[in-house]
Computed example of a mutant assay.
Amino acid sequence: MEDSFAELMRELYLLMERMRRSRVAPTPEGVTPLEARTMIAVDEMGRHGETRPGRIAEFAHTTPSALSQAFKSLEEKGLIERHRSEGDCRGVTVTLTPEGERFAAEGRRLHSEHMKEVMAYVGEEDVRHLVRILRKIVDFHDNAASAAPGDAAPADATPNPEGGEAPCA
């Protein structure tokens, strides 16, 4: 019994690693997968009024360093613009150019089409089972994180915008 559990766990880890490496999500011609995710994140976050790089990095599932490189490339391609935040000379906001908006829309369309193909291949019933199981795993992790003593603020908590910011000179 223990051997079959260990084998199942090993297979799960291997499959998760293969999925992580394969990230076959289609992207619009001329941008990398990270650049496409970044533009979609900028677009989505902009709808909610929050286009600061830290929140965009969370939404795009990347590091601030990788995001900085993506911003540089997207700016050079004329797909985003960066602006200094009003009231905070260190803060930056990011917006899509009209061409960037077109790329983000195309990225969304390609992603949606890809997900429909995956779901058709896997089958609706199996996808429903997968979603149910993933919810249980997420709930387990959420409960474990909230029960752990000394944890920092939850990942979705936003810092106090008033705290510790130096005025612009």
Rank of each mutant, 00 (worst) to 15 (best):
D142K: 14
H141I: 15
A120K: 06
R84L: 10
R55K: 13
E50C: 06
D156Y: 06
T95G: 10
R102A: 13
E2V: 13
T51H: 08
A104V: 05
R82M: 10
D3K: 09
D3C: 04
K77R: 11
I133D: 15
A166L: 10
T97E: 03
C168M: 01
R82D: 02
A169S: 06
L12Y: 10
E50R: 15
T38N: 03
N143G: 14
A36W: 00
M115R: 08
G100F: 02
M119I: 00
P53T: 08
R128F: 08
L130F: 11
L130N: 07
T27D: 01
E113S: 07
K116D: 07
D151G: 14
M45C: 15
V127N: 03
T158V: 15
E99I: 06
E75P: 00
M16W: 07
L8G: 04
G30L: 05
A36L: 00
R10D: 12
P149Y: 00
R108W: 10
F71C: 02
E11M: 04
E81K: 15
D126N: 06
S112K: 13
P26K: 06
R132F: 12
R132Y: 12
N160I: 04
E44W: 11
L110I: 05
M39I: 03
H111A: 11
G87I: 02
E29K: 11
G54E: 15
T95K: 10
A169P: 14
T95L: 07
D88A: 07
A166W: 00
T63D: 04
Y13M: 11
E113Q: 09
E99N: 09
R84W: 01
E7L: 09
F103L: 11
G54Q: 14
R82A: 12
S146E: 12
M45W: 04
P26F: 02
A155Q: 08
H141F: 15
E29D: 11
A41M: 04
I133K: 14
K136T: 06
M19Y: 09
A152N: 06
K77E: 05
E165W: 03
Y121M: 07
M1D: 02
D126G: 00
M45D: 07
E162D: 14
T51R: 12
G164N: 09
R52I: 08
R108K: 12
D142M: 14
E162R: 14
S65A: 11
T32C: 05
G123S: 00
R21M: 12
A145E: 13
A57C: 11
T95I: 10
L34H: 00
L15R: 14
A57S: 12
V24G: 10
